[in-house]
């Protein structure tokens, strides 16, 4: 927890090309602003919470929808997540990581919980998870900075080995357990476990994200 107040572009970035640094600075500013909004929310400021919603809802809704596939379920989980963020806003602290990571974690967990409790009802195409997303993104993101962020993550994913990428994608976007991923990929469980972790290590290093 020693690095939370250190700007994330201070070290560990192999190449400091101009757009990259700008994006990173923009992210820091945005991250700090989300912390302010969270603090205000914890004091009952509904307008601040509304802004927090506006600034985060595409990512939060996106991950919930991607895991659940059902807009009806996604809307329910979305509501649960934001009510919970509001309730828990005073319990967030920078030491736990960024606001967006805190929220995304909560959203992903709840989406996965929901999908595992209703999975028999929802027909899900596991391959869609990795191949289906590009068009949505272009429709959603119109800011240059956000496009760069998306591009950065996409490049990070592209830097992984195919099995790392596939395992991580099925687990994160597909909401599958590691055992299910192992079945889908016809690989031993231990291999899948390792690939998921290696995938996250590779992505972490490619993105230069610090906790």
């Amino acid at each position: 927890m020693n690095a939370t107040s250190v700007p994330s572009n201070s070290e560990g970035q192999p190449s400091g090309s101009a757009p990259h640094v700008e994006t990173s600075t923009g992210r820091d500013t945005e991250a700090a602003h989300l912390v302010e909004l969270m603090t205000l929310s914890s004091r009952g400021h509904e307008e601040a919470f509304a802004e927090l919603y506006d600034r985060t809802s595409q990512r939060i809704y996106g991950i919930i929808l991607r895991v659940l596939r059902s807009p009806d379920h996604a809307a329910e989980v979305m509501q649960e997540v934001y009510v919970e963020v509001w309730r828990q806003s005073a319990r967030y602290s920078r030491e736990k990581g960024s606001v967006i990571a805190w929220m995304t974690t909560m959203a992903h967990r709840r989406a996965v919980d929901r999908v595992r409790s209703v999975s028999s009802e929802v027909a899900r195409d596991e391959r869609y998870a990795f191949h289906g997303g590009d068009r949505e993104i272009d429709q959603v993101w119109d800011g240059v900075e956000q496009r760069l962020d998306v591009e950065r993550v996409r490049r990070g994913m592209a830097s992984l080995t195919p099995i790392q990428r596939e395992a991580l994608t099925l687990a994160y976007f597909g909401g599958y357990t590691q055992s299910q991923v192992a079945q889908l990929l016809k690989l031993p469980l231990g291999t899948v476990k390792t690939r998921i972790r290696d995938g996250l290590i590779g992505l972490r290093d490619a993105l230069g994200v610090e906790a």
Partner: peptide, 22 residues
């Protein structure tokens, strides 16, 4: 660290929620 990394992945899934939801 991984929690921050995984959160970045959500960028790839972004979608606009139904307007009434907010």
């Amino acid at each position: 660290e991984f929690t921050e990394t995984a959160a970045e992945l959500s960028l790839l899934a972004s979608a606009t929620p139904p307007p009434a939801l907010g």
